[in-house]
């Protein structure tokens, strides 16, 4: 029987359908969240069900910041437990999960069974999250691949601000002083990677490191993060789906009982 995980984040709504016994992926979908998390969750689930060949999941677990707004969810779980479960399923040697989402970043220490041993999250401020890159993307008028391309070749400009709002002012100041956009992009990438490193340094590093969330889609950023951490970093083929996959795995576990 198919089961589903739905992850409604601040930027994207994701859904994954699994077979509850074999845990084989049957379908998946990613859609922009927009202003209505409930509708986005419904649409993502419908799209993933269609992708799986019009199946009706018998159990749905919801996660992400929109998790409580989904009336069809049989179980609500935090994204921390879901990213842990998803990452350990994809890379069984995982001991630490790094997740950078739209509005927060997390470092999660995991057990071999995919459960959470400890975790840390960024503070209220959005610096060091996907939101920070959205700001940069707006100022430089480049999308994530273009930003990555630019950052890979730029000489990182120093970005001192710890706050996404002040960083925007700082970025505009750098551009006004004639600093090339590629150097600004490289500077922002480096500042996010360093914030992640400092968050990760508060959790003991053991096992492999797996990187999930939307920002992991940027090859330039994951290379930089691996270099900053000084360890190789696993990245799933669809890092954005790791949370929804984790939710689907937990749905399968509950549904089988």
């Amino acid at each position: 029987m198919p089961v589903a995980g739905v992850d409604v984040g601040s930027v994207a709504a994701k859904a994954v359908i699994l077979d509850e016994i074999s845990l084989t992926p049957l379908g998946a979908a990613v859609l922009p969240t927009g202003w209505n998390p409930r509708e986005a969750g419904e649409k993502a689930l419908a799209a993933a069900s269609a992708d799986a060949g019009n199946v009706a999941p018998r159990f749905v677990a919801a996660t992400g910041y929109g998790r409580v707004s989904l009336p069809f969810a049989d179980k609500v779980v935090t994204e921390i437990s879901c990213h842990a479960a998803g990452a350990v399923h994809l890379f069984p040697e995982t001991g630490v999960v790094l997740d950078i989402g739209g509005q927060d970043s997390k470092v999660i220490s995991t057990d071999p069974d995919g459960s959470v041993q400890d975790f840390l999250m960024n503070d209220k401020c959005a610096a060091g999250t996907g939101r920070f890159l959205q700001v940069l993307s707006g100022i430089l008028d480049m999308d994530l691949p273009a930003l990555g391309e630019a950052a890979a070749h730029g000489k990182p400009a120093a970005i001192s601000s710890m706050c996404a709002v002040f960083a925007e002012t700082e970025i505009i100041g750098l551009l006004a002083r004639g600093v090339p956009p590629a150097d600004v992009a490289a500077g922002v990438f480096l500042s996010i990677a360093r914030r992640m490193r400092s968050l990760a340094s508060r959790i003991p590093m053991r096992g492999q490191c797996t990187f999930t969330g939307g920002l992991a889609m940027s090859p330039a950023f994951r290379n930089l993060l691996a270099a900053e951490l000084g360890v190789p970093v696993n990245v799933p083929p669809q890092p954005q789906l790791a949370g929804a996959l984790g939710a689907a795995l937990l749905a399968a576990r509950i549904s089988r009982k």
């Binding site: 910041y65 779980v77 935090t78 994204e79 921390i80 437990s81 927060d104 459960s115 959470v116 041993q117 400890d118 975790f119 999250m121 209220k124």
Partner: peptide
């Protein structure tokens, strides 16, 4: 945000 943290802690 606190709810995410607290719920995840209780799930743990």
């Amino acid at each position: 945000q606190l709810k995410v943290r607290i719920e995840a802690f209780l799930e743990m």
